[in-house]
C-alpha cells in the first residue's frame, strides 16, 4: 500500500496569469498534503483561485511553478497525452453544471470513461449499472440529460465520475445549481462515497452548510490556506 505516502503533495505551488504587462498572482507557494480517504471542502471568496487549484489537482491545468505530486510522482511535468491517460485512470470530475453529453442517454454518459479502458462491452454494461445503482438513478438509465432534473443530472454525473473507480473525486461547486433539499441529497451521497467506499474527495464550494459534509475545510484567501476545524 501507498498509505504512508499522501495521495497528493502540493509543493510550493504558484499560479500566475499574465495579461499584457500585468501579471496576476492567484496563489503563491501553496503547500498541502491530501491523505487517502480524506474529504476536503475548499472554500473562499469568488476569484480566490479555488477552481484554478482544483484544475491543478485534476491535471487539466499546469502550475506556473512548484510541484503537484500524486502518489509520489510528479504530474505537473507530464505531457498532454500522459496527463490525459493519468486523468482517465485516477480522477473523477464533477462539475457545477453537470456537463453531460446531451445526445447520449444517462447510461451512455456513464459509460464514456470506460471507453478508455480495455473492458469488454458486457463488463462495461455491468459497471455502468452498478454506478447508476450507487447514485440511485438506475431507473432513468435510458433518459437523455434534458429529460432529467438538475439533481438527477448531477447523480448521473457522479456515476460517470466513479464508474472507472478513480482514486480522487474532484467536485467544483457540485450543488451550486441545486436547491437546498437536492443539494443535501447530493452531498449526502458524496459523504457516503467517502465513508463507505473510501473515495478521496476534494470539493470546492461557496456554501458553508455544504462544507459541513466534508471532513476538513480549507479556506483559500489571498492566495493562502487557512484551515478551520469543522464547525458542526
Amino acid at each position: 500500500m501507498t498509505d504512508q505516502l499522501p495521495l497528493y503533495q502540493l509543493r510550493d505551488l504558484s499560479k500566475t496569469y499574465t495579461r499584457g504587462k500585468e501579471s496576476i498572482s492567484i496563489f503563491k507557494g501553496l503547500n498541502m498534503d491530501i491523505q487517502h480517504g480524506d474529504f476536503i471542502a475548499i472554500m473562499g471568496p469568488s476569484g480566490s483561485g479555488k477552481t484554478t487549484l482544483l484544475n491543478q489537482l485534476g491535471g487539466i491545468d499546469s502550475p506556473s511553478s512548484g510541484q503537484v505530486v500524486f502518489e509520489g510522482k510528479r504530474i505537473d511535468n507530464l505531457s498532454q497525452g500522459d496527463l490525459a491517460k493519468w486523468r482517465s485512470r485516477n480522477v473523477g470530475f464533477i462539475f457545477q453544471f453537470y456537463n453531460l453529453m446531451p445526445t447520449l442517454s444517462a447510461a451512455q454518459n456513464v459509460e464514456l470513461p470506460l471507453l478508455l479502458t480495455g473492458l469488454s462491452g458486457g463488463e462495461r454494461k455491468k459497471r455502468v449499472k452498478t454506478a447508476l445503482e450507487i447514485v440511485g438513478i438506475a431507473d432513468r438509465a435510458g433518459h437523455k440529460p434534458r429529460q432529467l432534473s438538475g439533481g438527477q443530472q448531477q447523480r448521473v454525473a457522479i456515476a460517470r465520475a466513479i464508474v472507472a473507480d478513480p482514486k480522487i473525486l474532484l467536485a467544483d461547486e457540485p450543488t451550486g445549481d441545486l436547491d437546498r433539499a437536492t443539494a443535501d441529497e447530493i452531498l449526502g451521497m458524496l459523504q457516503q462515497l467517502n465513508t463507505e467506499l473510501g473515495k478521496t474527495i476534494v470539493m470546492v464550494t461557496h456554501d458553508p452548510s455544504a462544507a459541513k459534509y466534508a471532513k476538513r475545510e480549507l479556506h483559500l484567501d489571498k492566495g493562502e490556506f487557512v484551515e478551520r476545524g469543522k464547525t458542526s
Partner: peptide, 15 residues
C-alpha cells in the same frame, strides 16, 4: 467545444 472539453477531461486523447 464544451462537450469536447469534457471528453478531454475524461481522458480522451487529442489525437
Amino acid at each position: 467545444t464544451k462537450e469536447i472539453a469534457v471528453l478531454k477531461t475524461l481522458g480522451f486523447q487529442s489525437g
